[in-house]
């Protein structure tokens, strides 16, 4: 989680660039964007580790419920997945608006991405509460610990993403965002899409393949 917080700082470093200057770099790409990609490369190993832990403990359910079609609420999780995919679309539209310098649509799409993200997070809170009521506590079994750790890590990533989005949105409202800083939006977007593809993976491997 802490890394994600730090990359937040990265993403916003774009604020600091002198307006309008695009600095000469060896790759032709800005340091901030390159740093974000480097960071995302590292995140693959993080989620890989959590997913492997989950796969290792998938059937180790002790006395508690296990991963099965009747336990997971597939219709609801599918709706959640749609919400997150939709937020990816609004995110990319926000970036596109930022590149055109279209402040109005930038604000609209940023806010709607954050709102859709919040719907996803509320869905996760809902789902966790239902699971706990159904008897799957954090300490119930290695499966439950691994499941909550993996989806919880993802949820924390989403939440951090929403905070980044809202901060960007408020900065835009306050006029702190220079029109030339579309890159900040792009970098927040990279993070957001990454969180989305992690969910694409989790949804398939944990829910649908159960």
């Amino acid at each position: 989680m802490a890394e994600a917080v730090l990359d937040h700082a990265d993403a916003h470093d774009a604020h600091d660039a002198h307006e309008g200057h695009v600095h000469k770099t060896n790759t032709g790409m800005s340091n901030n964007k390159l740093a974000m990609w480097v960071f995302l490369g590292s995140e693959c190993l993080l989620f890989g580790g959590l997913i492997s832990t989950y796969l290792l403990y998938r059937h180790n359910i002790q006395d508690g419920p296990g991963p099965s079609e009747e336990f997971f609420d597939i219709p609801f999780t599918s709706a959640s997945s749609f919400v997150l995919l939709m937020s990816s679309l609004t995110m990319v539209l926000a970036h596109s608006a930022a590149e055109r310098g279209d402040q109005k649509r930038l604000k609209i799409w940023l806010l709607s991405t954050a709102l859709l993200g919040s719907v996803f997070v509320s869905g996760q809170i809902y789902e966790f509460t239902v699971f706990v009521r159904e008897g799957l506590g954090w300490s119930t079994s290695p499966f439950s610990s691994a499941f909550y750790a993996l989806t919880g890590f993802h949820g924390v990533h989403v939440t951090i993403g929403i905070i980044m989005l809202l901060s960007t949105f408020i900065s835009t409202l306050r006029g702190r965002m220079h029109p030339g800083n579309a890159e900040t939006v792009e970098i927040v977007g990279l993070y957001w899409h990454f969180v989305d593809i992690v969910w694409v993976f989790i949804f398939t491997v944990i829910y649908l393949a159960a």
């Binding site: 790759t27 032709g28 790409m29 964007k33 390159l34 990609w37 480097v38 995302l40 490369g41 590292s42 995140e43 693959c44 190993l45 989620f47 890989g48 580790g49 997913i51 492997s52 990816s88 679309l89 995110m91 990319v92 792009e186 977007g189 990279l190 899409h193 990454f194 989305d196 593809i197 694409v200």
Partner: peptide, 30 residues
């Protein structure tokens, strides 16, 4: 999502290389 929304298809190859290295390493070791 990676190619279109994250623009990997349109950006420099280095980004794809970084990301794919992470994915391949993760996939491999795990």
């Amino acid at each position: 999502v990676a190619a279109e929304f994250m623009h990997l298809k349109y950006d420099i190859k280095l980004f794809s290389m970084l990301f794919v290295t992470g994915l391949v390493l993760a996939g491999g070791v795990y």
